[in-house]
């Protein structure tokens, strides 16, 4: 009997141990690979621009000598592989070049503006989750198995509409209603707690609608699952049934999308900051694209990209932790 029971179980333990180490190793490997791809893409960005970026930046009237001097400054006259090696070395040491418009180190410009963007994105995400999770769970329970058709139709319609309206348009509408018509809230700048309300709402409402709709569908699906019938056969009270048995399973399927929404929010700051004149990275990147301040564009793209990659790592880890059987672990 001992041989019987021990042999397969030892295998299992060893497997699980290995799986986690392998997961961590592979995930780290993928992160490094993605970072490398990101840095390379940022490097190539300047070189893929048709024509001479310096000439484009300085305008057609600039003196040829000035262009040449600036090219030499930026190291653009070196062979491409040499430039690439230099760029990699500089990025690794935290040197992102010098902004042409600010005449400051790019890293300093970014460092000044990053906190504002981060505050905006993270607050908006928290608000979206706080709105979406209870709503989605409640709607899922209410509309399980095709009940309450009217409520479902109303909810789905509203959430589709809210999810469709892009954040910057929502921002414009909110500005008009609460800023212009009612005059309750400030519509621009980064001044006090009140100034957060409109930008955060315009970022959060769309993703909250999407998340709530998805969570409802997941809840409805999970409630129909075989194991929920098992749980009902145990005659458990409704709260235990839905919160302990259904919610974790519905959430694991929602986390991936939640992560995508968070990265989309990071990018969404670009537009919303422009609507609300919020002095952050998004505001800056648009100005630097228009001003053809390529080192700064490069730097900000890198920062946004790293943010997105970090979010992806967090999502994968969260899925792996919450759902021990997830395909995320198994793929690695």
């Amino acid at each position: 009997m001992t041989t019987l029971s021990q042999a397969p179980s030892r295998t299992l333990t060893r497997l699980t141990g290995n799986t986690w180490i392998r997961f961590a190793a592979r995930r780290a490997g993928r992160l490094v690979l993605s970072l490398w791809a990101l840095v390379t893409a940022a490097f190539l960005m300047i070189h893929l621009i048709p024509g001479d970026p310096v000439r484009a930046a300085l305008g057609p009237t600039a003196a040829a000598s000035l262009v040449a001097a600036r090219r030499a400054d930026l190291g653009l006259d070196d062979p491409l592989p040499v430039q690439y090696v230099h760029y990699l070395r500089d990025v690794l040491s935290g040197d992102l070049g010098t902004s042409m418009t600010f005449n400051l180190p790019t890293s300093q410009v970014i460092g000044d503006r990053l906190p504002a963007t981060l505050q905006l994105a993270l607050t908006a995400f928290a608000v979206a989750v706080v709105i979406a999770v209870p709503t989605g769970v409640l709607m899922g329970v209410l509309t399980r198995g095709g009940r309450a058709r009217r409520i479902e139709l109303g909810f789905t319609g509203t959430s589709v509409a809210l999810g469709t309206i892009p954040d910057f348009l929502l921002g414009v509408l909110l500005v008009y209603v609460f800023g212009v018509s009612l005059g309750w809230l400030p519509v621009a700048g980064h001044t006090g707690p009140a100034s957060y309300v409109l930008p955060v709402l315009s970022l959060a409402i769309g993703p909250a609608a999407v998340l709530a709709r998805l969570l409802r569908v997941q809840m409805v699906t999970v409630i129909e699952a075989d194991y929920m019938r098992t749980a009902r056969a145990k005659r458990l009270p409704a709260a235990v049934l839905y919160l302990r048995h259904a919610l974790p399973n519905a959430l694991t399927a929602t986390i991936t999308v939640g992560g995508l929404l968070l990265s989309a929010m990071i990018a969404g700051t670009v537009l919303v900051e422009n609507v609300f004149a919020w002095q952050g990275l998004g505001d800056t990147i648009v100005h630097s694209i228009l001003a053809k301040d390529y080192p700064l564009v490069q730097g900000i793209v890198l920062v946004y990209g790293v943010g997105v990659l970090l979010v992806n790592v967090m999502v994968d880890v969260a899925v792996a932790l919450l759902d021990p059987h997830s395909t995320t672990i198994r793929e690695y």
Partner: peptide, 28 residues
Amino acid sequence: AAHDAEPADPHHPPTGCRYHPRCPVGPL
């Protein structure tokens, strides 16, 4: 007990005769 034994894991086949952990005329 042999009949109730778990099916073996194809990822880690037993040594020797692969059926021995379940075999009613085997070492068990």
